[in-house]
Design a protein around this nucleic acid. Structure first.
Lengths: 329, 329
DNA sequence: GTATTAAATGTAACCGTTTACATGAAAAAC
DNA sequence: GTTTTTCATGTAAACGGTTACATTTAATAC
C-alpha cells in the first residue's frame, strides 16, 4: 500500500503538503493540490487510520458496551448506534458486560488504550468512578438508562415512570380491577421507575394490595414464576402489568399453562416493545420504547461531542408509546 | 499516561529493554527485569495499543461483518465470537452489511486501514474478489455459511441438507403425508441446500408434488404469505417444513389466523433454533444449528490463524439437532 | 526602495511502540 | 594471552501519519 511519502515524492511536494490537501487543514495552491490529487489517484493512496490514530489520539471507533447482545432489547440499540456511526465513517466496537462492573471496567481500560473516540454504555451497574475517569481524560461518553443522580455526562433513557402509568391506565380502561405488577431487579433504575409508576396509578384502585407486586428478574422464566406465585396469592387478578416484555411473555406462558385465557380472564401488558411481542399468541400489548431511535440518538450525541469537544450533560428522556394488541382487548 | 520512555527513564534502562521485558521477546537479566517491572508498577504503565498496532500492523481487533444484528439469528453468533475474542484480550468490531456487497466491501476497506487482525464474515453475497484480496495481503478471514466452491479460506457452516432431511423425516414420522416446504431466497446457499434436502426425502412420498414448494423470503411475513398461497393450492397439506424459524413463525401465524390447528391438523417444523421458537404457541419444533458454538468456533479458528500465521482452508460443517416441540407432536 | 505582511510550502519533531543492528563486557576456546 | 562466543543492553530506524515552526517568495505599505 502506498504511503503519504510515496504520494509526496510522486507529486514533488513534501508530506506536509499532502497532508494539507487530504485534510483541507490549510490553504494549498490549487495547482499544487491538483498534482497531489493526481498522485493520490494514481497510487490509489488511502491514509492509514492507525498512523492517524496515533498522531491524533482518535481511531475513528466508538465503543458500545451493553449487558448482553443476546437480550432481545439490545440488537435494535446496537443497530441504531452502528447505523449512525457508519454513516459518519466510524466503526463500532461491541462489548458484552453481562452487567458485571468488572467486565465493564476491563473493557474501558482496554479500549482507552486503543484510542476509541468515545463510549456508549448501556449499563445498570456502571460505577461513578469509571464515568469520572473518562470525563477527566476528556473522553466523550453517553450513558443509556442510568440514574439522574449522575448528570456528569449525557444520559438517554425513556420515560419509564410515565410509561408504566400509561400501561396500567390502559389496563384499567380495558376493565381491569385487580392489576398486578411483575417488577424487575430493583438495582436497575428502569425497574424502580416502572414500579413507582405502577404504584402511583394502581394505589387508587379499590382492589389494590401491595402483595400484587411480585419480583420477576426481567426474564421469561422470572415472569412465569412470578405469575405462578401471584396466582396462589391472588387467584382473582384480572390484569398484569409486566416490567418488561420478556416477563410479559413468561406471564402469557404461565397463564396458558394454567388454562387461563388471555385477554378474556386476565389481560397482560408488557414494556419495551421488542419484536417478540408480535409473535406471542395472543400478541402482547406493550409500552414501547423507541429502542432503535435511542441508539441513533446516543450515537448522534456522542459524535457531536467528539466533533465539537464540548461536553454534553443533558438527560434526555424519550417518550414511550402504548401499542395495544390482543393481550388486552 | 505514562509511556515506555518514562518507564525506561525511571528504571534506568533503554526503551528496548523495557519492550523486551513486556513482550518477553528476548532474554533480559532478571535483576534488570525486576527494575523494569517495578517502574511499570510504579507508573501504572500500560502499553499503548495504537502505537503497538502501528509498529506491528495488528490492532488486536477482529472484524465481524454480518447481514443484520436485528435478525435474531445473529446475536448468538456475535456473542460467541465476542466471548472467545474477549477471553484472548481482543475486541470485536461489528458491521451490518444488509447483505449488500457494496457495504461489505466498504467495511473491509475501512477496517483494513485500521489494521484489524482478521475478519469473520457471515454473508451470502460476499464476492470472491474480496476474499482473494484479503488472502493476498495475508489477512486472516473466516467465512460463515458460504459455498464450498471457494475453499480459499476457512468456512464454517452447518449441515443444512442433512438438517432438512432430518426435519422432513421427523414430520413423516409424526404421520404427515403431504409435506410442503417454504424455501428462502435461492441466492443463499443455505436456502438451496435445505430445499435439496427437503426434495430428497419428500420426493419419495406418495403425496409429493413440486407445487408443495413455495418461496418465503426468510422472514415472518414471507412465511405467512407462503402459507396462504400454499393453502389455496393444497388445502390438504398436513406438514410444513419451513426453511428457517422466522418463516416457521409466519406459518404458525397464518395457520392460526385461518383457524387451522397446529399440530392437530398441520404440523410445522422450522430451522435454525433461535430463541423465538420457544415462545410461539404452540412452541415450534426446529432443526437447531449450534449458533453460539459456530461463533465461538469461527473466532477460535481465526485467532489460531492470526497467531500461527498459517492459513486455514478447511470447510467445517457442524451437526444440527432436531428439537421436537409441540408444533409437531 | 526598504520594511512589513501574507501566501505557499518545507523541515523536523512528535505520537508510542517494535526490532534489526551495534556495542561492550564477560566467558569459553585455543 | 589472544581470539571467538555468548550474554545483556543500547541505538536508532522503522511504522505512517499530523502539525508547530521555519523559510522562501511575492505582494503591500510607507
Amino acid at each position: 500500500m502506498a504511503t503519504i511519502k510515496d504520494v509526496a515524492r510522486l507529486a514533488g511536494v513534501s508530506v506536509a503538503t499532502v497532508s494539507r490537501v487530504i485534510n483541507k487543514t490549510d490553504f494549498v495552491n490549487p495547482e499544487t493540490a491538483g498534482q497531489v490529487l493526481k498522485a493520490i489517484e494514481q497510487l490509489q493512496y488511502e491514509p492509514n487510520a492507525v498512523a492517524r490514530g496515533l498522531a491524533g489520539k482518535k481511531m475513528g471507533i466508538i465503543a458500545l458496551i451493553l449487558p448482553d447482545i443476546l437480550n432481545p432489547f439490545f440488537p435494535a440499540l446496537a443497530r441504531g448506534v452502528e447505523d449512525v456511526a457508519h454513516k459518519k465513517g466510524l466503526t463500532v466496537i461491541l462489548g458484552n458486560s453481562d452487567d458485571l462492573g468488572l467486565k465493564e471496567s476491563s473493557y474501558i481500560k482496554v479500549l482507552k488504550k486503543k484510542y476509541v473516540d468515545g463510549f456508549i454504555i448501556a449499563s445498570n451497574t456502571i460505577r461513578e468512578e469509571d464515568v469520572e475517569a473518562l470525563r477527566k481524560e476528556r473522553i466523550p461518553i453517553v450513558l443509556l438508562d442510568r440514574g439522574l443522580n449522575t448528570a456528569s455526562c449525557a444520559v438517554i433513557r425513556s420515560n419509564n415512570r410515565e410509561g408504566a402509568k400509561i400501561g396500567v391506565q390502559h389496563l384499567i380502561e380495558q376493565g381491569c380491577q385487580r392489576i398486578a405488577h411483575i417488577y424487575g431487579p430493583q438495582e436497575f433504575i428502569t425497574a424502580r421507575e416502572r414500579l413507582l409508576g405502577y404504584e402511583e396509578i394502581a394505589k387508587g384502585l379499590s382492589g389494590y394490595s401491595p402483595s400484587l407486586m411480585v419480583s420477576g428478574n426481567f426474564d421469561i422464566e422470572g415472569g412465569r414464576k412470578a405469575v405462578e406465585q401471584l396466582l396462589t396469592r391472588h387467584p382473582d387478578v384480572d390484569g398484569i402489568f409486566a416490567g418488561n416484555d420478556l416477563m410479559g411473555v413468561g406471564a402469557l406462558k404461565a397463564l396458558h399453562e394454567r388454562g387461563i385465557r388471555v385477554p378474556e380472564e386476565v389481560k397482560v401488558c408488557g414494556f419495551d416493545g421488542i419484536g417478540l411481542t408480535e409473535i406471542t399468541e395472543p400478541e402482547l400489548t406493550t409500552v414501547a420504547q423507541p429502542i432503535y431511535e435511542m441508539g441513533k440518538l446516543a450515537a448522534r450525541i456522542l459524535l457531536d461531542e467528539i466533533e465539537s469537544g464540548i461536553r454534553e450533560n443533558s438527560i434526555i428522556e424519550l417518550d414511550v408509546t402504548l401499542i395495544p394488541r390482543k393481550s388486552t382487548q
